[in-house]
Write a protein that binds this DNA or RNA. Structure first.
Length: 828
DNA sequence: GGAAGACGGTGT
DNA sequence: CACCGTCTTCCC
């Protein structure tokens, strides 16, 4: 792959008034150092110390890494310390990404470094390790201390961390031993990830110049040495030493002799840690259907035009979205620009990667969580050097350091994984918009069940709507049955399998096909449901399910949204039935029931319990794919991205569980989820069957799902959102306070809510009552949250930032923690 | 985040 | 007033 490597600063401006000072953000995640510090640029670093460079600077009494965010001519009189070192050959951050980090920090109310760290591959930064050494071993020692010292003696180097882990309650004793001079701490800064190198060899200048005479001067017995020199003479660059030795069938001593004599020199050769084991056969673009063609055309225009353009590609499963992406990317490359392709981590399977590798070969870099730190770093470096044109990756690949971006694709746009859940808690599509604006690029959102946010934007014309309504190979969509579990109960079927599901299962197994059994359970927040009428008990104000709380000696139903609370009903408030109970069936329970009722079936269960081990996920899926089981039973994790040719039946045990999650998006999510699961059935030859069991068969989500009518469902549901002022018509921010003492947590939350009320009085900002968070106690800390909604973040940003910093101080001081989630995607 | 100074309690 | 644990401050 021959690409021109353009790193910014490749062309050095011959400016006589070169800026002599750098504004640096130090690599410390704390709010009071979240500003630029000024440093002198020593003449020696004038060329390398550019915006985006990673530098080493003196900071207080320490040396720290930091990032240059601006170059200036300083006017200040105060003493300015010099930069100590520039840490990379080329700045790891582009000027665009430096700007983006500033925007991100403001948008998501976080520190600048947190944003920069999110943009860089983990492991690039230096890591400080604290080692513990034994200075002296006194004869008389506390037996516990002796035991610890013995353990340390048995290994060469131990970190403080390791000792702490091994001896959990030894903290105080370690401090004491240090003070007594028995132990010593030794802090070392380890340089971050580097390129992997192998030893390479080449002829030295002098050997090359005097080649003829050198050959002649060799003893006739030194045949191998001669061969070496001849081989290296024919080589332009250094050759990895292991390759040379293998080629010439000789050992290390040959080459070492030549090195000693000064004929051969060694040099470190960078090698790529390549995560792909095989070269892929290349393929060609497929012929497009008329619909695909119609969708592709506007995207191509969008790539060519000189401003940002956004598209929503709404295509049913099997309608060939990926081929549209691939051809759009081709057009982008033809324009000399680069492309980012984002997919949810879960669907970043070898098959997905293969599709891109086959079309674009070495021009593709892949970034996902299963790469080793080294592989990830190398892939990132290939991007940074502009050696690749395309990145396929999960969320964080949105920060790929490309310099002329032409296209960003966000596939399965509606997936929740596009929100990062630690700071900066960014929403990927917003980052995409920033970058597209900056680079005048096109953004394509793809989904079979688009998020309401994107649909509304399409309606208002902010993004262009493109639809794929037909399957490429004309397969039938699966047939979806909704089963009324209330009737099952009435007819005396008290099991968790309806008669229809049972019957379908039998048929599937007789035909030696396979099935997925989906248990739709999320969160442990239990809601209360009437098994007779199918109603979940909801908050009278918020249209959100109430959550069942068990306190010491009484139970209560609570609204996590507004704080409304009432006692638990013993009978249904609507129909008076006593068949009322709180829900929460686990996968184990279903597995037991399956074994009881279908003892001959081979079941694979996939949930958090069976997939904690690394690689177990793949192992279980492989076993199922190889037909070593008839049923794959699981939660969300079996809903997405999987493609098993022999699955003809999908069963959903109880759709209600996700329907009644106390979140305004519950309906949207349930529809997306059920559509996704349904899509797992009959993807190949046979038409698939889907059986969805529910206590609320008339619920609009379920009727829409049965008919697969996304548009009608969207039109109806969006009305509720508009009336109740939920996103996308407003935006949520969610504050969370945690503290060991419940009253403190509660009072801090009340104080926060008070501050917010005061700051935004008279503005169209709604602050909801502080309530216990959905998981009210985690790790011994009581959690309270305060939700707020507003129309435009930038109208409240300054005040929010102030409240955030003030409150953070207050909460920290009292020993608690505070976190803030801007544009929260859920109110849980 | 973390070192260094300020602070405030305790003990001879 | 030295000593020590904890809280505050400052870092170009």
């Amino acid at each position: 792959m021959s690409t021109i490597c353009v790193i910014d600063g490749g062309e050095i401006k011959m400016n006589p008034k070169r800026k002599g000072f750098a504004e640096v953000i130090v690599d410390v995640r704390a709010y009071d150092v979240d500003r630029a510090f000024l440093y002198q640029i020593p003449p020696g670093f004038a060329e390398t110390c550019q915006v985006g460079a990673r530098v080493l600077v003196p900071f207080g009494s320490r040396k720290l890494e930091g990032y240059v965010v601006n170059l200036t001519d300083a006017q200040t009189v105060q003493e300015i310390k010099p930069i100590l070192d520039v840490l990379d050959d080329h700045p790891p951050l582009t000027p665009e990404l430096v700007d983006l980090s500033e925007w991100l920090a403001a948008r998501y109310c976080t520190t600048r470094v947190a944003c920069m760290q999110a943009m860089l591959p983990g492991g690039i930064r230096a890591k400080q390790e604290t080692y513990l050494k034994i200075r002296q071993s006194p004869a008389i020692l506390d037996p516990l201390d002796e035991q610890m010292l013995q353990w340390m003696r048995e290994r060469k180097r131990v970190t403080l961390e390791q000792v702490r882990k091994q001896f959990p309650d030894a903290d105080g004793r370690i401090d004491l031993l240090i003070k007594e001079g028995i132990l010593q701490i030794d802090k070392q800064l380890h340089r971050g990830m580097k390129e992997k190198t192998v030893q390479g060899v080449a002829l030295t200048e002098s050997a090359r110049n005097q080649y003829e005479s050198l050959i002649r001067s060799l003893s006739p017995r030194a045949r191998k040495q001669k061969a070496c020199i001849e081989f290296l003479y024919a080589q332009e660059d250094a050759v990895p030493v292991h390759e040379l030795l293998a080629k010439l069938q000789t050992g290390r001593s040959t080459i070492e002799r030549l090195i000693e004599q000064g004929h051969v020199k060694t040099e470190a050769l960078a090698v790529r840690r390549n995560p792909f084991d095989s070269a892929y056969e290349r393929d060609k673009p497929l012929a497009l259907t008329a619909e695909q063609q119609q969708s592709l055309q506007p995207i191509l225009q969008g790539i060519r035009q000189k401003r940002k353009a956004e598209f929503l590609l709404h295509g049913i499963t099997g309608s060939g979205k990926t081929e549209v992406y691939l051809q759009a990317i081709q057009a982008c490359l033809n324009e000399g620009k680069q492309a980012i392709m984002l997919v949810p981590e879960i669907s970043l399977t070898p098959q997905t990667v293969e599709r891109f590798k086959k079309r674009y070969g070495e021009a593709v870099a892949v970034l996902h969580s299963r790469l080793s730190a080294g592989e990830r770093y190398d892939e990132w470096l290939r991007i940074r050097r502009q050696d690749v044109k395309i990145v396929v990756g999960a969320r964080s690949a949105i920060f790929a350091p490309f310099q002329s971006l032409g296209l960003i694709i966000i596939d399965e746009e509606h997936e929740t994984s596009y929100k990062q859940d630690d700071p900066p808690k960014y929403v990927t599509h917003e980052v995409a918009c920033f970058r597209a604006q900056y680079a005048n690029a096109a953004v394509v959102y793809g989904s079979a069940t688009p998020s309401f946010e994107r649909m509304v934007a399409a309606q208002t014309g902010d993004i262009q709507y493109l639809a794929l309504t037909k399957r490429v190979f004309g397969q039938e969509m699966p047939k979806i049955h909704i089963v009324d579990m209330r009737q099952e109960l009435q007819s005396g079927n008290r099991t968790m399998f309806s008669r229809l599901l049972r019957q379908q299962m039998e048929a599937v197994f007789q035909q030696k096909k396979q099935m997925l059994l989906f248990l739709n359970r999320r969160g442990h927040s239990t809601f209360v449901l009437c098994r007779a009428c199918g109603e979940a008990i909801k908050c009278p104000h918020c249209d959100i399910s109430l959550t069942f709380h068990k306190l010491q000696n009484w139970t209560q139903l609570r609204c996590h949204y507004c704080g409304y609370a009432k006692p638990v009903d013993s009978q249904c408030p609507l129909c008076g039935s006593r068949h009322i109970r709180h829900f929460g069936t686990g996968t184990q329970k279903v597995e037991e029931a399956l074994k009881m009722e279908f003892p001959h079936l081979r079941v694979i269960r996939m949930d958090i319990d069976t997939t904690v081990q690394k690689g177990s996920h793949e192992r279980l899926l492989d076993a199922f794919r190889n037909k070593r089981a008839d049923v794959l039973l699981g939660t969300q994790m079996i809903a997405k991205g999987l493609d098993f040719p022999d699955v003809t039946l999908v069963g959903v045990i109880a759709a209600d569980t996700s329907l009644h999650i106390p979140d305004f998006r519950a309906n949207e999510r349930t529809f997306q989820l059920l559509s996704q699961v349904a899509g797992r059935a009959g993807r190949h030859t046979d038409q698939g069957t889907v059986v969805i069991q529910t206590y609320a068969p008339d619920h609009p989500v379920l009727t829409a799902c049965a008919k697969q009518t996304y548009d009608a469902f969207f039109r109806e549901e969006i009305q509720h959102r508009r009336v109740l002022q939920y996103p996308p018509f407003v935006e949520f921010a969610s504050w969370l306070i945690a503290h060991e003492a419940e009253p403190t947590a509660a009072s801090l939350a009340v104080q926060l809510a008070g501050d917010l009320h005061q700051a935004f009085a008279g503005k169209s900002v709604y602050i909801l009552q502080p309530t216990p968070a959905p998981f009210p106690k985690i790790n011994g800390k009581y959690r309270y949250h305060v939700l707020m909604k507003y129309a435009n973040w930038w109208h409240i940003e300054k005040q929010m930032r102030k409240i955030h910093t003030d409150m953070l101080k207050e909460v920290r001081q009292k020993g608690g923690t505070l976190s803030l989630d801007i544009n929260a995607q859920t109110i849980l």
